[in-house]
């Protein structure tokens, strides 16, 4: 018998000092699951809910539309808001469909793929929204330079416009950097491990 067969035999014969009785197993089944997919699910839901709650959370949300009106952007701002909600409904539906497919009794490969697909839906949702916000901000700034008296006054000051552009770029970079770091810290490590496992299975 070679060493490998010997190892297999010992493996087959191993006993465990933690064998559970029926009563202990019943007690174990009463405990709550603490698995990581659950908090990924809750965090994803939170991201959706935050967008829905935006009108309540931002104090001057309604007043902002009056400002857009003064910039001749009222229709544009309404359309962008509607687009935001259409995107929200579409991605929530897709998220739910994908989440329903996560079954722990699937094969390991399918399980990894469905988890990655579900989380990817939220990532695409988030970056779509970020894109909409960035385009909207740029358009508002361009129009503000034409119609907002404060912005017009600023343009007449020496170095005023350059200072404004630098300030806008810095603020946008901070916003993007903050969310990129948050995503890296919250999901990065977990999803990278899953991706690595998925690739290893295919290889």
């Amino acid at each position: 018998m070679n060493k490998l067969d010997d190892l297999k035999e010992k493996w087959g014969q191993q006993t465990f000092n933690t064998n559970y009785s029926k009563e202990e197993l019943n007690r174990i089944l009463q405990q709550k699951s603490s698995h990581s997919i659950r908090w990924i699910f809750y965090l994803s839901l939170l991201e959706f809910v935050l967008y829905l709650a935006l009108p309540i959370l931002l104090p001057n949300y309604a007043a902002a539309f009056q400002y857009y009106k003064s910039l001749h952007l009222y229709s544009f701002s309404i359309l962008t808001t509607l687009l935001g909600y259409a995107v929200l409904i579409y991605f929530m539906w897709r998220f739910y469909q994908n989440y329903r497919q996560i079954k722990v009794s699937s094969s390991v490969s399918t399980h990894l793929q469905t988890i990655l697909k579900t989380r990817r839906t939220v990532n695409v949702y988030f970056f779509t929204n970020l894109g909409i916000v960035l385009v909207f901000t740029v358009v508002v700034l361009m129009e503000a330079m034409k119609y907002d008296e404060n912005f017009i006054a600023l343009q007449n000051q020496p170095q005023g416009i350059i200072g404004l552009i630098v300030a806008v770029v810095v603020v946008l970079c901070i916003i993007i950097g903050f969310f990129a770091l948050l995503y890296y810290l919250v999901y990065g490590r977990f999803l990278r491990t899953l991706k690595k496992n998925e690739e290893e299975l295919k290889a």
Partner: peptide, 16 residues
């Protein structure tokens, strides 16, 4: 077989 699948999925994807 079903037990192996659930067990491995839990160990690989759900448990850290």
């Amino acid at each position: 077989t079903w037990m192996y699948r659930v067990g491995l999925n839990t160990a690989i994807t759900l448990y850290r």
